[in-house]
Amino acid sequence: MNRFVETLPFNLRQGAKVALAATLSYVCATWAGLLYPYIAVVSTVIVVQVYVADTVQMAALRVAGTVIGCLVGVAALALVPETFAWSLAGLFATVFVCAFLISYSGYFRMAAITVAIVYLAGLGEENSFAFALERTLEIVIGVLCALIVSLLVFPDRASRALGETLHDYHAEAARLCDFLLDSFLDMQRRGESADMGRLDRLFAQAREFLGKALRSESWLVAAEKRQTLAAVASAERIHEGLHGMAHALSVPHGQGVRFLIEPELRALGEAAAEALKVRGLAARKACEVASQMGKAGAGSGMRFGWSDISPHASSHAASSETGAKTSREPWRATLFAALERCDARLAELRAQGITRRLSLEKLSQFYAFYGALHALADFLAREDLVSGGA
């Protein structure tokens, strides 16, 4: 019931878009004097999708499929005798050819629909070519109406959905970072294992929305393709770090212990979680700006406000540029400081021989977890994904 209430406004809006596009296509087809305006309505309902990128892609498939299906249908009407038996054979052959080719190109899916309409409706018509052309025009009118409504009425863009998904992804990553660290420091408890499923689903959704935005929202690609790809690539690095922490915790390594480095580890985990939250907010804001610029026809592309990324830095000694950035971003300065304290404390414990008191398997578990967390925090501290004004 909660999900129904949460999604109700969006679903009502989507229903209104489809209904408006269908009504508009019927009016246009009727005004044009076409014989079967309902074909335009059917095409509209097929083409209108949730996101503009999907609608654009479906429109391209529908138009291309219409042309292919029209040509195949006209050829069949011209070559196949109009007896009942031959008509059945012609219908089977034309639909079979288009359906067979679907596996090679998505354009033929719509061609199979069109060829059935053109061939069956054209049986008995004197001028089959003109008849098929009129059916094609009905479909094109439906497609155009679907595009117009999708672009102008409540346009839901894949870039905006990408921003929301990245925000949710980073929020979930921050929650998991806290949960995994608490579990590790609490005697490495494994009774309640971390559920990584939602994080995996959000990451898959982000990649899906990125593909849609890059394919069909050209204003996104024009100037910011590299930064957009880097945003999702950085999510993959975060993914690896969290899964590494979860794996180190899930493998049994003897009896649980308390670590003297616990205060430093906790501070590092909290700083990493805060950095993840900041990055999620920045990603959502950037994609919202991009979506608004796309609606306004900003043309050449939008500015994310994200600098170039340097994920392969070898150490976390801050450069002068990084120092200037950390002064504007307290979360980054906190993260660098937590990394330095952890390194210093671990070096101190090793110098005192404290680590030799742990069993080999417990020591391997500690270093596996610490290495994953340290690599994640170091990546977050170094990567210039979030602008200073975020």
Rank of each mutant, 00 (worst) to 15 (best):
Q227T: 04
R382D: 12
E361P: 05
A337N: 12
A282F: 08
A298K: 14
V47P: 01
A78S: 09
C28I: 13
V48A: 01
E236C: 07
K285S: 12
A194Y: 02
R332V: 04
R332E: 01
D195H: 08
A223W: 07
A194T: 03
K362W: 03
H167A: 08
Y367D: 09
E348H: 10
T334D: 15
V45S: 03
V115A: 05
E236Y: 10
L12I: 12
V257D: 03
L268D: 04
L12T: 08
D384P: 12
V149F: 01
E348Y: 14
S319R: 09
H312W: 14
V67S: 06
W31R: 10
L202E: 07
A93E: 04
L8S: 08
A347K: 14
G244L: 08
C145F: 04
E288R: 14
S307K: 11
A19S: 13
P263D: 07
S105C: 08
A76L: 13
L276P: 01
V289H: 14
Y36W: 13
R109A: 12
Q14P: 02
H374Y: 15
V386D: 01
W331M: 03
K17G: 08
F92S: 12
T30D: 06
S159W: 00
G371D: 07
G33K: 06
V48H: 00
I148C: 13
V67E: 06
L123I: 15
E164Q: 11
M293P: 02
H239Y: 15
L202P: 10
L147S: 03
S216V: 02
L242W: 00
S150H: 05
L265G: 06
A206I: 08
A222Y: 09
G65Q: 04
S291N: 05
A59H: 02
Y38T: 11
K362V: 12
V63C: 06
L34F: 14
R357V: 10
A213L: 13
Q49S: 12
F369A: 05
E236F: 11
H374S: 11
A53D: 03
H316G: 02
E164V: 07
F4S: 12
I102M: 14
A233D: 14
M196A: 05
P263N: 10
R303T: 04
V118L: 11
A272D: 03
R237H: 10
M293S: 02
A93Q: 03
A351Y: 10
A338Q: 04
A233M: 12
D168S: 15
G305V: 00
I46F: 11
F154C: 11
C342T: 14
A204P: 03
V289D: 12
L249D: 01
L88N: 09
A390T: 10
A372D: 01
A248N: 07
A333H: 13
A206W: 00
H243T: 05
Q14L: 13
K225M: 13
V74K: 04
L137N: 03
